[in-house]
Design a protein around this nucleic acid. Structure first.
Length: 423
DNA sequence: TCTGGGGTCCTAGGACCC
DNA sequence: TCTGGGGTCCTAGGACCC
């Protein structure tokens, strides 16, 4: 059996560890620029605030019901996440970190242990030490763990945070209850196709011929069906180095000056380079994109992206910055109101296995010591203390004022690397 | 006034090879 | 008259996840 440990409304729970008085009140956490809602307490959900709700549309409601809202504090969330992982993994031999607020535990080999009781101990331990409430869903496959977790959350009084989905009878009952769109791996598009074909519950999908599923959903669908039947198709993954790194942001205000956009894009490129060096890889591809505000139908729309394959893999901020600049020049058009831009790097090779083109000058190795020194100084003295001349050094992204509790937290903790998948 | 920021995997089609 | 077939690699786009 696997267990899925899922932190309840994780970002909000993290905020509550800093301020106990938030307990029992409606609380939301907002994305960058305080744009939209990314985490909601139960009380906030009950007020009808949907996930990803644009904050400006709900301002009145927030005021009316005294909803507390916070800007995201990712250092805090990453730190708490690591604490939860450390506690959970101490109970098992094998585990998989699935996201910032979820991890799978391998319970095979626990034949003679009362799994239910054991998972209660994990849950209580996490709550006692870290003040983070979790739900645990237990089942023979990952997909069924997700279902079990959903059941825990939908029937809180009945299950008290833990549910085991093990017998065929329980599985059948659960799948006849679960809407198809809530199955792990069914997104918005597939949900529509499912409804069109009369599939409304997870159970209905199992009644469809395999060929049909294969045609509509590809190989995912076949795996999904087996997983729902309790036949294991997905193993626990061991942590793997990233295959792409992206730094993208929406701007607080729309930008019309070329140099302002350039400065941001160059900064994004530098962040990408830093993250490449952190995992000791070089990239062979760089992509730059810019776009206008797609919600402003009154303004002309423009979006473009361009990718360059590098002759020699690199993680030098200087070399990547140069490429980013060229690409930016190639796609930037005057006369638009830019709202968002980003840099994405991919196609990685380990730093020490680079194959060098014979015909292109390669200065990566000259840059590396300087870059590593820059990284070390930034680590010691704070983010962006040492930077390239092209960066303005201004804080270009908005963030609300930090609470005193959070300032205290930042001072008192050595923060772990922020390399989790989001959420 | 104001709408997030990351990631992964799969597939179809084209280029190219013999 | 008649115009191969199989394979790989790459890329863009689409789907999904949190």
């Amino acid at each position: 059996m696997y267990a899925l440990v899922d932190c309840n409304n994780f970002f909000v729970s993290c905020e509550r560890t800093l301020d106990q008085s938030l307990e029992g009140k409606p609380v939301v956490v907002l994305s960058n620029n305080d744009g939209c809602v990314v985490s909601r307490s139960k009380e906030a959900k009950d007020l009808g605030i949907p996930m990803a709700a644009p904050a400006f549309k709900y301002k009145e409601l927030f005021k009316q019901h005294d909803v507390k809202s916070f800007s995201a504090k990712f250092e805090l969330y990453n730190y708490k996440s690591q604490q939860v992982i450390d506690i959970s993994k101490s109970y098992v031999m094998d585990y998989e970190i699935y996201s910032i607020d979820e991890l799978f535990l391998d319970l095979s080999g626990f034949k003679y242990v009362d799994i239910h009781e054991y998972c209660f101990k994990i849950k209580d331990d996490i709550y006692n030490k870290e003040n983070i409430p979790v739900s645990i869903g237990i089942a023979p496959t990952k997909t069924l763990c997700k279902v079990a977790n959903r059941i825990v959350k939908d029937f809180p009084e009945q299950f008290n945070g833990i549910y085991i989905l093990d017998t065929p009878e329980k599985i059948e009952k659960a799948l006849k209850w679960l809407p198809i769109e809530d199955v792990w791996g069914i997104g918005r598009r597939l949900a529509v196709k499912m409804h069109d074909s009369g599939v409304y519950k997870a159970w209905d999908l199992l009644q469809k011929p395999e060929m049909w599923v294969r045609k509509i959903m590809g190989i995912h669908g076949v795996r999904m069906i087996n997983e729902l039947k309790g036949i294991r198709q997905l193993e626990l993954d061991s942590p793997s180095p990233k295959k792409s790194i992206a730094v993208t942001r929406s701007f607080m205000e729309m930008l019309t000056a070329k140099e302002e956009v350039r400065e941001r894009v160059e900064t994004f490129g530098m962040y990408c380079s830093e993250r490449l060096r952190k995992q000791n890889t070089c990239c062979r591809m760089v992509t730059v994109f810019v776009q206008t505000n797609r919600f402003r139908k009154d303004l002309p729309e423009y979006r473009n992206a361009i990718t360059q394959i590098l002759p020699n893999p690199t993680n030098s901020s200087i070399l990547i910055g140069r490429v980013v600049n060229e690409l930016f020049e190639a796609i930037y058009r005057d006369g638009f109101h830019y709202k968002k831009a980003g840099v994405i790097v991919n196609d990685f090779v380990p730093e020490d296995e680079r194959l060098i083109s014979l015909f292109e000058e390669d200065t990566q190795n000259q840059h590396l010591p300087v870059m590593k020194a820059m990284d070390a100084m930034n680590k010691k003295f704070g983010k962006d203390k040492v930077r390239l001349g092209s960066m303005s050094g201004e804080n270009t992204f908005g963030r609300a004022q930090l609470s005193p509790e959070y300032e205290a937290f930042l001072k008192s903790n050595t923060l772990p690397e922020a390399n989790f998948r989001f959420h």
